[in-house]
């Protein structure tokens, strides 16, 4: 212990080391001639020690001041980068909304009536919050990539996370489609019924009604299926679903 410690004493604070020289010489050199009568003393009448102490305290103060300023600089740096980020996010958000809008406009111009094609939902439905819409779209992207299992969880997550979204009936509808693909017919029936009964005004109702017909057919309940298809034709005569119902009924005739 004693050896390393003594050695360690050597590595002194820097100011300390330089002043230690001064002090050590002072006390080992008692017989040194007093040269104080020379100009240096006359020029500098203030006691050196007090001056040193003053300087020390001033340095302390300066250090404190520096720290304070550093704090201000760092805070502002942080604030600036936050503002930059906010600005960028805001721009990207506005940009995305604009391009969405222009797409909707051109879609409307091209199609006049919106067909119940898979990707209609995003263009037809009105204001949807950015995140809900993104979640919906990423779920739908999975459908397109035929990643059905992932798509199912994505839609389930969407339904759970955005219970107030205007895209909810669409999400249910697509979930039903996916269940049909996975042969989960009962689950499919449940969600198609949800669309029809809970969201009667949704644009997905004709499609969901038609799909219910297909569900009954899968059960082998052909009479019920036909009745459902006729109901679709009656209720939504101009819809794509009506045409599809026609095709179904035709196929049954043969």
């Amino acid at each position: 212990m004693s050896i390393p410690f003594r050695n360690a004493l050597k590595v002194l604070p820097l100011m300390a080391a330089s002043f230690s020289l001064q002090a050590a010489t002072l006390f080992t050199d008692e017989n040194a001639p007093v040269l104080g009568a020379e100009p240096p003393v006359a020029v500098q009448p203030a006691p050196q020690n007090t001056a040193n102490a003053q300087l020390l305290l001033q340095i302390q103060q300066l250090q404190q001041e520096m720290q304070m300023l550093r704090n201000v600089v760092e805070q502002q740096q942080q604030m600036i980068s936050q503002l930059q980020k906010d600005g960028r996010d805001r721009y990207l958000d506005a940009d995305r909304r604009l391009s969405d809008l222009s797409k909707q406009v051109s879609d409307l111009r091209d199609n006049k009536v919106v067909a119940s094609e898979p990707d209609d939902s995003s263009s037809v439905l009105p204001v949807v919050s950015g995140t809900a819409k993104e979640a919906y779209q990423s779920a739908y992207a999975l459908v397109k990539q035929q990643k059905f299992d992932q798509a199912i969880s994505a839609y389930q997550g969407f339904i759970k996370n955005y219970p107030d979204s205007s895209l909810l009936p669409n999400a249910y509808y697509w979930l039903g489609e996916l269940y049909m693909v996975k042969n989960l017919t009962q689950e499919a029936e449940r969600v198609f019924l949800t669309v029809v009964e809970t969201y009667p005004k949704s644009r997905k109702v004709p499609d969901a009604s038609y799909k219910l017909g297909l569900v009954y057919a899968r059960y082998g309940q052909m009479d019920k299926a036909k009745a459902q298809m006729n109901e679709v034709k009656k209720q939504f005569p101009k819809s794509t679903a009506s045409k599809l119902a026609d095709q179904f009924l035709d196929a049954q005739q043969k």
Binding site: L9, L12, F19, S20, Q22, A23, T50, A53, L56
Partner: peptide, 15 residues
């Protein structure tokens, strides 16, 4: 160390 520095600048050697 603040006290030490105060002592040192007034002639007390660091060691």
């Amino acid at each position: 160390n603040a006290v030490k520095n105060y002592f040192m600048v007034q002639g007390v050697s660091a060691d």
